[in-house]
Design a protein around this nucleic acid. Sequence first.
DNA 1: ATCTGAATTGCGAATAGTTCGCAATATGAT
DNA 2: ATCATATTGCGAACTATTCGCAATTCAGAT
Lengths: 129, 129
Amino acid sequence: MSISTKLAKLGYKFTKPRLQVLNYLEKEKSLISARNLHKKIKAIDRASVYRTLNLLEKEHLVNVEIIEKEKLYCLADHPHHHIICRKCGYAEEFDCDKNEFKKFYNFSNIHHQLTLTGICNKCNTITNE
Amino acid sequence: MSISTKLAKLGYKFTKPRLQVLNYLEKEKSLISARNLHKKIKAIDRASVYRTLNLLEKEHLVNVEIIEKEKLYCLADHPHHHIICRKCGYAEEFDCDKNEFKKFYNFSNIHHQLTLTGICNKCNTITNE
DNA sequence: ATCTGAATTGCGAATAGTTCGCAATATGAT
DNA sequence: ATCATATTGCGAACTATTCGCAATTCAGAT
């Protein structure tokens, strides 16, 4: 099912800004920030880019990685991660289920950050999320 | 070797702000943000808290996790990660080498973010980092 | 103990990424 | 085509963090 269809099913309207953002995300082979997305789609407002990305994030239709406080987005069409060059920003994708770690050999000096969040027992007792 | 000793070895001066930040990081059992660190150490300037944390990060003396654009710090005395409640911020530690994942059962609805950075071949050719 | 040059601080202003309030507009169900 | 509602664009606002620079503090030499 296409992302557009999913959005429609979820009751969201089909607007120009949303279509444009989706188009660009589909074209984009790598990760992209809200800032750069907005640069590419000058016709639509900065706030709308952010609002659309937040919406997509909330509905789990995009994946997010944070590099230096900047959120980078990609379509969540399949489960994967990226390894990103700290100098030039070049990113390679790796499937998080398969043994594609050989790709890492294209990079040196690897750092990683693993962030896990959840709902703790106490909060879970108070209200269901 | 204590972190203070390490700092001295690296040629950094031994100043009140740095000592205070280190003291608080040692006391802190969980993760803490620059903002909250500054709240606790009112005597020293915000900028100095940030500068000290950046220094510690550069020298790999603290570990960092980013939650909602905010950097959270802890001393890098041993390799570990945290799982953090998305509602209240409560954090539990887990050793990243051992099978302590059972701790996860205290949390539900787990999300994760894995960020890998490195230096790509091209950048590595241009200059050594 | 004091001097001295360099490192570091505090301050306030600046920056960057992101969000908000609200009037104007576009959407899709009827 | 109409209408209620969701969504947009705009600019102002907010938050985390950094910067420039003069004043201060540190550590090593005297």
